[in-house]
Design a protein around this nucleic acid. Structure first.
Lengths: 299, 299
DNA sequence: GGATTTTACGCATTTCGTAAGTATT
DNA sequence: AATACTTACGAAATGCGTAAAATCC
């Protein structure tokens, strides 16, 4: 057993068990990976892949269990490299952030600019993804830190940091009836609504507001990001329900924002990372920047 | 970086950072391990060992952090081997049990005999150790399962299973005053006492019984195991306070046992193992036997 | 028939062992 | 002086690449 065999198993996992693709990714020839896999399985004494003829079709029960340990080894190996690099030079490295469009556009600019000021040599990779995929990005180690708004499943290996609370708001053109007068659930329900898709940016809280009523929201358009919603609100398609912070006082002067905190429960944005994944110094400082920016929002 | 380098780091840890001893243990020459360590440190870019001249004296701060990951890799590697072996033949293997003398002699015989009956091919290694060392034996992977009586520090990686409750008892020669009449703390305190050493087999509970009194126990002799205590009780040195289950109705006919459950809080024996350490099927069945034997004790 | 995996064999690289050299107690 | 670690170089082992065969869809 050696580390390149472990790496091979991980890469096979990420490439639908294709030996040829794994070989490409490892920059060696197919025959070499084929042989290494044979050696590994021979050492264990049983196959870890289900086969149809010569093709790998999936993991055996043994393989499934073995892959848990493979992930542990691979993670620890990567940690060692990051720890050593961090120790050599804590000013540079790569920071992978997984987040949604709304966070990336309306919350992250300030903390990221400040961070870049302190750590100009750190490269920031921003992965935009749907909320339910953010945690997966952590597990697959594509991201080090995730910034999430939706509910997150319990996970022993996951560290969650409360970042800031926010609430939804209505945006409408200035001429729209909802631009004045009290806003109630009944009034809201009488207009076509444009808001986030399921699982996006606090959508579940909007659902919650209507849960115990007879009213039904008429959602004409559900989009993943706020900009799309605003665009169609401007076209007169209906009433936008967006995250309050996603209203830009300058760019959105043509729209009226009306707070919904009395109707829709507040949402909490959280910072997530894996306990097993070593975060270099600059990453921990980035989290500090996020929390600082969050505290400024509330004041 | 490769797995034999990781193994080298672990072995160095266990051999006071001696390259020559590590080489012996790995069945290769010193020069080879010296070179491998150089290669590893060169790959990281910084030394992981403090040196005085050429000798390794300990870990650097970097090395200290790296060793955590090394332990994770080494543990996962061992798990893979055990998982595969368990899958090939779940009837054989080695079971390392860490426990105290008292448990080994008075509680374990029954479950172990039953277990051996079901798994004749499994080899059982029993490590007797002081209670505070039992958990260390798990962490150093010298033992898979520990059977403990004393308080155990909180540890995320530790799984604790309640096994059985028991209480202390007095043993005295038949001619001793305490062989009849009510037993009170006052009476107990008036005799010289023979019992377990600090940290042993519920000793802390004996302390607890006297904590809120003016009385002081006169402990003439403190020993690690019950047999030593009984021996000196027979010689008339005083009153033995032992674990109730450690009285053998046949062998100890010359002694009188008097229950102390009204005076000393009951103790709980627990089964401990590491979450990260894969236990083969037979080990899990051994735990079942322990729990079964425990339930029979109570009835 | 095109794509994928396996097998066979020579070559390159890695790692070990021997032996001599250097440092530490 | 004895023990422990390092360096140098040849030898063994390991792993890769090329090429051809086998298998799958």
């Amino acid at each position: 057993m050696n580390l390149s065999q472990i790496e091979l198993l991980r890469i096979l996992q990420e490439n639908n068990f294709s030996l040829s693709k794994a070989a490409d990714q490892m920059h060696i020839v197919q025959s070499a990976v084929s042989r290494q896999l044979q050696l590994f399985e021979a050492e264990l004494g049983s196959p870890i892949y289900e086969r149809q003829g010569k093709r790998l079709m999936g993991l055996t029960p043994l393989g499934l269990r073995v892959m848990e340990e493979v992930a542990a080894i691979d993670g620890a190996k990567r940690n060692i490299k990051v720890i050593a690099a961090d120790y050599l030079d804590s000013q540079q490295g790569i920071l992978h952030i997984a987040t949604t469009h709304t966070q990336a556009k309306y919350f992250l600019p300030k903390p990221i600019l400040r961070f870049k000021d302190k750590y100009p040599a750190v490269k920031i990779y921003m992965l935009e993804a749907a909320p339910e995929q953010l945690i997966d990005k952590l597990h697959s180690r594509q991201a080090d830190i995730a910034i999430c708004t939706e509910k997150i499943a319990e996970d022993e290996n996951l560290v969650l940091n409360r970042c800031y609370a926010w609430h939804h708001a209505v945006v409408v053109p200035k001429t729209h009836p909802l631009s004045s007068g009290e806003i109630t659930l009944e009034r809201l329900a009488s207009f076509p609504i444009l808001t986030y898709g399921f699982g996006f940016t606090g959508r579940s809280n909007i659902e919650a507001a209507f849960k115990n009523t007879e009213l039904k929201l008429d959602i004409t358009l559900a989009a993943a990001d706020t900009d799309v919603i605003k665009t169609y609100v401007r076209l007169g398609m209906g009433v936008g329900i967006i995250a309050g912070m996603a209203y830009d006082p300058v760019m959105d002067q043509d729209l009226v924002i009306r707070d919904l905190s009395h109707l829709v429960p507040s949402s909490t944005t959280k910072i997530a990372y894996l306990k097993n994944n070593y975060l270099p110094l600059y990453s921990r400082h980035f989290i500090d920047e996020l929390l600082l920016a969050a505290s400024e929002l509330n004041s």
